[in-house]
C-alpha cells in the first residue's frame, strides 16, 4: 500500500510540474515524472514477496516467480514514454527557435 502511495505522490509531482511550471522543458520533465510514476506503479503491482525474477535457471527450479506480465507491459510503456518525450522536446526546440522563449505564457498566438 505505501509503495503504491509513493507512486501516486510521484504522479502528483508530475502533475504539479505540468500544471504550474511555465517553462516548456519543466513541463517535459513533469511528463517524464508522470511516466516513471505509472511505470513504477505497474512494476510494483507484479511484485510477489520472496519470489524470484521470472527466469528459469535450471529445469528443476521452483516456480515461485513474480508476475511477468506487468514487466512486459512496462517495457512497452517505457519505450512509448521515450517516444512521447522525444517528440515533445523536439516541438519545444522548434518553438524556442520561432518564439525565442520557453515561457508557455508567451506562446499564445492561438486564442479565442
Amino acid at each position: 500500500m505505501v509503495p503504491y502511495l509513493c507512486c501516486i505522490i510521484l504522479f502528483l509531482i508530475g502533475i504539479y510540474a505540468i500544471l504550474t511550471k511555465r517553462n516548456l522543458i519543466k513541463i517535459a520533465i513533469g511528463f517524464c515524472l508522470l511516466e516513471y510514476a505509472v511505470n513504477l506503479f505497474f512494476a510494483l503491482i507484479g511484485y510477489k514477496k520472496d519470489a524470484l525474477a521470472p527466469i528459469y535457471t535450471n529445469v528443476s527450479q521452483s516456480k515461485n516467480f513474480v508476475d511477468p506480465i506487468p514487466q512486459a507491459l512496462v517495457l512497452t510503456a517505457i519505450v512509448i514514454g521515450l517516444g512521447t518525450t522525444a517528440l515533445l522536446l523536439s516541438v519545444a526546440v522548434r518553438i524556442y527557435e520561432k518564439y525565442k522563449t520557453l515561457d508557455i505564457k508567451e506562446i499564445k498566438r492561438l486564442k479565442e
Binding site: L10, C32, L33, L40, A43, Y47, L52, P54, V66, L75
Partner: peptide
C-alpha cells in the same frame, strides 16, 4: 530527473525485474 530514473531502475531490480 536522471536520478529519479536511476532510482526507478534500481527499484526495478529490487522488485525482481532485471529486464526492466
Amino acid at each position: 530527473l536522471g536520478i529519479v530514473g536511476f532510482s526507478v531502475a534500481i527499484i526495478f531490480i529490487l522488485v525482481q525485474a532485471p529486464d526492466l
